[in-house]
């Protein structure tokens, strides 16, 4: 694993073109300013982490990027187009996908059905196709099913064997995997992962670190990651931004972040020190 991290880290994609550019992002909830003038610049191919104490506004940034909230102010440029204010499904169509901190699967659908919903934007959605099962519709459905199985296969044969299980019956780690497989269905360019190792033991976490790196490689993804476990973020990130009380207090490569006074004070100081 150490070697893999080293190769992943060596080009930090600093010279690659911007994929997601966030300028002066503000999100208010009534009197609370959850995100307060945040700028981020994520380059194609990066694994970019956002860290910060609980309540710092990290998930809110994700929710704004994915269109759950309209930002109170600021710009979100994805691949050069302004996506702030678009509906979530339009943003998915443009190539941004995500997972949730608290895993939001469709519990009473099977694993396969969950992953098929993830491909919704790539399937014909008109009533006539659905009602009359026209050949192109049937072909698209068959392809979607094959693709869903391939996506599950990313996590090994074991996940393929679980395809007809209801999502509610899966283990925690399996649920995380299905959520990622579902998120891959829209053929994204950028994947937002909100604490993908939360609640996992050490072995599962190590496994998750591996597949996050494989995601970038095999699907040509850029990854924006919220992660609490510093041994994870420090190991796999090309760049890290630190949020505290809605403001970005630091940004840089992992080594810089580990040394940054304000970060140690605001974040690391309040938690266990980095090893």
């Amino acid at each position: 694993m150490a070697q893999e991290q080293a190769t992943a880290n060596s080009p930090t994609h600093d010279q690659a073109p911007s994929l997601l550019q966030i300028n002066g992002l503000v999100q208010r909830f009534g009197g609370l300013t959850a995100v307060d003038g945040v700028d981020l610049d994520i380059r194609k191919g990066q694994i970019y982490s956002v860290i910060g104490p609980n309540g710092a506004g990290k998930t809110t940034v994700f929710n704004v990027i994915t269109g759950i909230y309209k930002p109170s102010a600021g710009q979100i440029l994805f691949d050069g187009t302004q996506v702030a204010g678009m509906k979530p499904d339009q943003i998915v169509r443009r190539g941004i996908t995500r997972t949730f901190q608290n895993i939001r699967l469709f519990n009473n659908m099977t694993v396969l059905e969950n992953v098929l919903v993830g491909q919704h934007t790539r399937l014909p959605g008109d009533v006539v196709s659905a009602l009359f099962r026209l050949p192109n519709y049937r072909r698209a459905e068959r392809r979607a099913e094959q693709r869903a199985i391939e996506l599950l296969g990313f996590f090994g044969q074991g996940m393929i064997e679980r395809k007809d299980e209801y999502a509610a019956n899966l283990s925690y780690a399996e649920r995380r995997r299905v959520e990622i497989a579902r998120a891959l269905g829209s053929s994204p360019k950028l994947m937002l992962l909100d604490e993908p190792t939360a609640g996992m033991n050490d072995a599962e976490t190590a496994d998750a670190v591996q597949y996050i790196q494989r995601l970038r490689r095999e699907f040509n993804l850029t990854i924006l990651l919220i992660e609490h476990k510093l041994q994870v973020t420090m190991g796999i990130s090309d760049r890290i931004a630190v949020l505290d009380y809605g403001k970005k207090i630091a940004e840089g490569v992992p080594a810089e972040i580990q040394r940054n006074e304000r970060v140690i004070e605001a974040y690391l100081g309040r938690k266990a020190a980095v090893e």
């Binding site: 499904d89 469709f106 998120a183 829209s186």
Partner: peptide, 13 residues
């Protein structure tokens, strides 16, 4: 089942 997750999967509500 979950409107938010459905939207995030590309379903136009």
């Amino acid at each position: 089942e979950d409107e938010t997750a459905a939207e995030a999967s590309g379903v136009n509500l």
